[in-house]
Amino acid sequence: MEPLLAFEDVTFQYSSGQSVLEGVNLEVRPGEVVWIRGPNGAGKSTFLRIAAQLLQPQAGNIRFRGHLLLPRSRCYLEEMTYIPAEPYLFDYLTGRENAEFIRYLFSIPRGDMDTWLQRAEAEFGLVGALDRLVRDYSLGMRHKLYWAAMLARSARIFLLDEPFSPLDHDSRTAMIQELMARVAQGAAVLFTTHVGELAAEFSTREVWLRNGRLDTAGHLED
């Protein structure tokens, strides 16, 4: 089966000269949930930001459905959802206004967004919160709102950076069930997390990032 996403000798270093990734290779196929492990500072978030096209590597290629991925590729961005450790939301807009901005930004059909906002109220404990300013939200509520808005998209690739820690048990369960339903339909997930037990059940395989390289064997001490 052809990979949805393939990283070929991807190298990245910061302007300070600090090397983060050195010739990283990884293939992700439809139906896979890949847990990217590694110690703090190993470059896991940087790797996901490169996959989300927020950073550009100094060397190497990334392929999407077998085709070389160019910067800001529209066809890729339409099928990719990135959820960072701290959601991109505007403090002085309400939850509903933030969702409307995301809907406009990603051309999400209004009906799809309305459906997910209703689910957010019913399943994620956001009843009465959507019309409040986001500055008054807890980190967990910010994540619930951002998840709900981004799940309204018909994405095939999900890039998740520490997505589960701020969520309560019920919301976390609902998010994972939704992701697994999409994986069953051919989506793929790359994620990082320190919630080990949950990740072990959720992932289909694990890879380790350390010393700038990615490997699939070895032991990592927490």
Score class of each variant (00 low, 15 high):
134 V>W: 11
134 V>K: 03
135 R>I: 07
135 R>S: 11
135 R>A: 03
136 D>Y: 01
137 Y>Q: 04
137 Y>H: 06
137 Y>T: 10
137 Y>R: 01
138 S>F: 14
138 S>C: 15
139 L>T: 15
139 L>Y: 13
140 G>N: 14
140 G>A: 11
140 G>D: 12
141 M>S: 03
141 M>W: 02
141 M>V: 01
141 M>P: 04
142 R>Y: 01
142 R>L: 10
142 R>D: 02
142 R>T: 03
144 K>T: 02
144 K>I: 07
145 L>K: 00
145 L>A: 02
145 L>P: 07
145 L>V: 03
146 Y>P: 09
146 Y>A: 06
147 W>F: 13
147 W>R: 02
147 W>Y: 02
148 A>D: 00
148 A>S: 15
149 A>Y: 06
150 M>S: 10
151 L>E: 12
152 A>Y: 15
153 R>V: 12
154 S>C: 05
155 A>F: 06
155 A>V: 11
155 A>L: 08
157 I>G: 05
157 I>A: 14
158 F>A: 03
159 L>I: 09
159 L>Q: 09
160 L>W: 11
160 L>E: 07
160 L>N: 08
160 L>V: 14
161 D>S: 07
161 D>I: 04
161 D>Q: 03
161 D>T: 00
161 D>Y: 11
162 E>S: 06
162 E>H: 13
163 P>L: 09
163 P>E: 09
163 P>T: 15
164 F>V: 13
164 F>T: 04
165 S>V: 14
165 S>N: 05
165 S>W: 09
166 P>G: 01
166 P>Y: 11
167 L>V: 03
167 L>W: 04
167 L>R: 03
167 L>E: 06
167 L>A: 01
168 D>R: 06
168 D>T: 11
168 D>M: 10
168 D>I: 04
169 H>K: 11
171 S>Y: 04
171 S>H: 14
172 R>L: 07
172 R>P: 07
172 R>A: 10
172 R>M: 06
